[in-house]
Design a protein around this nucleic acid. Structure first.
Length: 310
DNA sequence: ATCCAGTACA
DNA sequence: TGTACTGGAT
């Protein structure tokens, strides 16, 4: 494990590439290019030694526990996930617990994390793993990506962290490292441009540790730079929360969890003052597997697979 | 008031 | 290829 360091100054040992260095692999012959890749790896590992993070989900290699952490880390910062992670695993220690739990229990524990849809996805993953996969999470990124809520980044991360496989993936900290280091002059950078560098620099001898190091270096860069990911082709700012659809969605789900069930009239009341009709929002929440109608009331879906059918 | 994050589906 | 999905920190 790395230890927390403090000195960020670039004046390092002779020959070493300093924290925050910009590099280019362009127009290097193959020998020089290999040496530059080596230098980059040294830089990343040195940052890991100095600024590596001791994160709760790095104490396990259990695929279920890694899955939970990676889904939580989608769109949600480390600090908030760290608070919720153990609580979630206490409530649902293994796939079967998540499989058997009512969705409302899962959503209740999930509260505060945002993007409730991810909790629905986790429950659906548990159902497929129990029913179709003999209770074991698959090992290949391609197979993993057929599960709800698992895309390229999460699939790659699970393979690297749970199985120590040399998969290629890009998430925000990794993106930050490559944009900062290799695309300093560029105005915008797409993941397609970054991926070949991820491939070329990957340390096949220890993918798990390499990705720990890469993400920690990215996180350390993020604390001292204006976010280089603003150059990412996918980057965009978020609109205001007040009065937004996402605000009313979360209000409705929270109310349903607290009260058990609500009539359409009560939900319309929650929507008053927004430009969205209760009907539209409920339909979307139902499509997302979050709610379902019961008689003349609405409640949290019994099981996420059942969207609509009681 | 502004910032950050990966997936799904158009 | 673009856009919608949240909530807490600052």
């Amino acid at each position: 494990m790395p230890r927390g360091g403090s000195d960020l100054t670039p004046g390092e040992k002779s020959g070493a590439i300093a924290f925050g260095s910009r590099l280019s692999l362009d127009r290097l012959d193959s020998g020089k290019r290999a040496a530059a890749v080596d230098g980059f790896r040294g830089l990343v590992y040195r940052a890991y030694r100095d600024f590596g993070r001791d994160l709760p989900w790095r104490h396990t290699r259990d695929p279920y526990e890694i899955l939970v952490s990676e889904v939580m880390l989608q769109q949600t910062q480390v600090g908030r996930v760290a608070q919720k992670y153990h609580e979630f695993l206490r409530a649902f220690p293994v796939f079967r617990d998540l499989y058997e739990a009512p969705l409302s229990d899962v959503l209740t524990v999930w509260q505060g994390m945002g993007y409730t849809r991810r909790a629905v996805a986790l429950k659906r993953i548990a159902e497929r793993v129990i029913r179709d996969c003999d209770g074991r999470l698959p090992r290949s990124p391609e197979h993993l990506q057929t599960f709800p809520g698992i895309g390229t980044a999460t699939a790659g991360a699970i393979c690297a962290y749970a199985y120590n496989l040399p998969t290629l993936f890009i998430e925000t900290n990794i993106r930050r490292v490559f944009i900062h280091t290799f695309f300093g002059e560029h105005e915008t950078v797409s993941d397609r441009q970054i991926l070949p560098l991820v491939e070329e620099t990957l340390d096949h001898t220890q993918p798990r540790i390499w990705y720990y190091a890469l993400t920690d270096y990215g996180a350390a860069l993020g604390r001292r730079l204006e976010n280089p990911n603003r150059k990412s082709a996918g980057y965009h700012r978020q609109g205001p929360f007040e009065g937004s659809k996402r605000q009313i969605r979360s209000t409705i789900v929270r109310a349903l969890l607290a009260r058990g069930a609500l009539t359409l009239g009560e939900i319309e009341l929650l929507c008053s003052g927004t430009t969205f009709g209760a009907d539209t929002i409920l339909r979307e929440l139902q499509r997302d597997g979050l709610v379902q109608p019961v008689g003349d009331q609405w409640c949290v879906a019994f099981t996420p697979g059942s969207s609509g059918t009681v």
